[in-house]
């Protein structure tokens, strides 16, 4: 017998516990009392700064980005009716990568006289523009004759990703040692640069995206039976597809531009939840947001602590934890389906 508990409550409690753990641990350990003092503004200046200007924005960014990656993963999988689908497939990531790398390589020449923060922002901005431009291109390729064909879109996404990958490779080949290091770190993702500005940019966009994607949950359920099915039920199929793609591109574009590439969240979290709680998108999107946030938060806390005072790139951890877990999930499912 299954115990009776509310899934969102469990996920919420997990998130809160991880937030607490995250704010207390790190290169500088905080005790409970010190944390309380810092939160209520009665701690020393250093701890005050650490909690309010370093840890909390970073935790919040992890929550926002984790939620966004998991929700967009779930939405793309539903839209493409493909368990392997990830925002990567519609060209978001490859475009962001190409533009970010271009900026990383060129900024030394272009922005030589400017302060470092301008260079950082320019990389983020380039990644964001790249994400939207490539998605737009993939979309144009797939939307022939006034109708969006998701299979073509998938193939176009792969083609564009290969092309962008080639150009990225060319730039990497041209880059200097230190640029190469920047590129590698960027492609492994990090929440290291988190600050309140980033939270203020990503937070509202991700909230809005989550809200609007959730409004299409019924359509995404209908899509599971096929586009024709959704059409005959009365959904405006092309509009749904366009909306979902635009929001996915926007959310992932913003996240990638702030944190670099973080893999596996969008793939593992929705799958795990699907096997646990079923596919119904009315629940899946909310659960994905909560668990995705927890997953990235946990991964980031680990990334900050395992080799403290240094930091592991978070992309390494999400893959290191996510991939074996995913394999275990697949094996377990296979065994189960053989028993049935």
């Amino acid at each position: 017998m299954k115990a009776q508990f509310s899934v969102p409550a469990v996920l919420l409690v997990l998130l809160v516990l991880l937030l607490l753990a995250g704010v207390m641990t790190g290169a500088y350990e905080l005790s409970g009392t010190n944390l309380w003092r810092a939160l209520t503004g009665r701690a020393e200046e250093l701890e005050q700064f650490l909690v309010w200007q370093v840890r909390i924005p970073r935790l919040l960014l992890a929550v926002v980005v984790g939620a966004a990656l998991a929700v967009t993963g779930a939405a793309t999988q539903g839209l493409f009716r493909n368990p392997l689908a990830e925002p990567t497939l519609i060209g978001v990531t490859s475009g962001a990568m190409l533009f970010a790398v271009t900026m990383l390589v060129l900024s030394a020449k272009l922005l030589a006289g400017f302060p470092v923060w301008v260079q950082q922002i320019s990389v983020s901005l380039a990644a964001f523009i790249g994400a939207l431009l490539t998605t737009g291109l993939v979309y144009r390729l797939a939307a022939g004759r006034g109708r969006l064909d998701v299979t073509t879109m998938l193939l176009a996404g792969i083609a564009i990703a290969a092309l962008a990958g080639a150009f990225t490779g060319l730039l990497v080949y041209q880059s200097t040692e230190s640029q190469l290091r920047d590129i590698t770190f960027w492609s492994l993702g990090s929440l290291g640069g988190a600050n309140w500005t980033q939270v203020a940019i990503a937070g509202p966009i991700v909230l809005a995206g989550g809200f609007f994607l959730r409004r299409d949950a019924l359509a995404l359920n209908a899509f599971l039976l096929g586009e024709r099915e959704a059409e005959q039920l009365g959904f405006r199929v092309d509009q749904v597809k366009r909306r979902v793609i635009v929001w996915v591109a926007l959310l992932v574009g913003v996240c990638i531009s702030l944190t670099g590439l973080i893999g596996f969240v969008g793939l593992v979290i929705p799958h795990f939840l699907r096997l646990w709680q079923g596919t119904d998108y009315r629940r899946l999107l909310l659960y994905s947001a909560l668990l995705g946030a927890s997953f990235l938060l946990g991964a980031d806390t680990l990334a900050r602590t395992v080799v403290a005072p240094a930091e592991l790139p978070i992309g390494i951890l999400t893959a290191l934890v996510g991939a074996p877990f995913f394999m275990w999930l697949l094996l377990r499912e296979r065994r189960k389906s053989m028993l049935l």
Binding site: R81, L224, L225, G226, E229
Partner: peptide, 24 residues
């Protein structure tokens, strides 16, 4: 329209599939 064949992208339960009928 009752389609000739339906391939579900991801599994739904029988009750969930029937419920899709009242989404309109």
């Amino acid at each position: 329209v009752l389609a000739q064949s339906v391939y579900l992208g991801f599994p739904l339960s029988v009750a969930e599939v029937v419920e899709i009928g009242c989404y309109g």
